[in-house]
Amino acid sequence: MPSAQEPQPNEAEGQSARASARRRLGKFDLSSQGPILGLILLAIVGTALNSDFASLANWMNVLTRTSFIGIIAVGMTFVIISGGIDLSVGSMVALIAGSIILVINSLATHIDAPVLVVIVGMMVSLMMGAAFGTMHGLLITKGRIEPFIVTLGTLGTFRAVLTWLADGGAITLDFGLSQTYGPVYYGTLLGIPIPVWVFLGVAIIGTVLLRRTAFGRYVQAIGSNEQVARYAAVDVDRVKILTYAFLGLCVGIATLLYVPRLGSASPTTGLLWELEAIAAVIVGGTSFKGGSGRVTGTVIGAILLSVIGNILNLTSIISVHLNAAVQGIVIISVAFLQRRRP
């Protein structure tokens, strides 16, 4: 932390000047505090409009429903910092959800151990996510195709395959099995829902990976200047593949938490989640151009986005037709709060 120690004399002059400028601004450094400030403001407004907003039950609802997008957004943070993008995550959720429901349903007819079957299903979810992510990484690095194009392609493909598997309808978990699987979403530990714990865990792992490991530094180096990173002997391809694989794994985790909620997957599952996840990352202060970003910012960004919807549902001061407009204005305002100095 810059405030903790004096700049070393051998540091570049520009950098030390910037660091001291930042120190002078002290706690009013809006560019990193924007999202949390926005969230606090929203919480005040929400509580003023409806006192139930501040209730523990409501916060648990909000955090639980944020956990899917939030977990995906943590993975997305790495991809975006490295200068990439993944548009396919929503479709990937749909395809993995449908696939594991089919796997669980069919295994259950052969094996009479529902808990084991559900665990196998959860493992399949993680493996599919990691495999899809790795495939993206390989196509982007070894195949030398733009990430936008690769993931735009799979965005359509994943959802189409799910629609085909579901024959256009919904794939539904058998009732007895959804009773077994249910606690993974609806269960609580120390009064806090399981998905919130998992979200917290993923966020901590993400923070440590980004800030405390060589991998995290490579990701940031590639995002700020890929060519220089290559000259510095960073195995750029390998790091990039790993970021997509990590995102895929996050999608797998989100999906295994999502499936027990409604016990079904349909062609509308995960629709537009990619945009929500990307928005959470950017609102959270990660640069869309890559190079720098924070996992904690992403977590706050994701919570902020679902709090807006929550407040709108808890009040009826404006026409429901304008909900999306309010969301849009809040997103832009928060982005304005944390804008970078040129």
């Binding site: 629609t163 024959d167 256009g168 309808g169 919904a170 349909s266 062609p267 509308t268």
Partner: peptide, 11 residues
């Protein structure tokens, strides 16, 4: 085309 359950029903 069958893209959600209702249109799947139509088909």
């Amino acid at each position: 085309a069958a893209t959600h359950s209702f249109t799947a029903g139509i088909v």
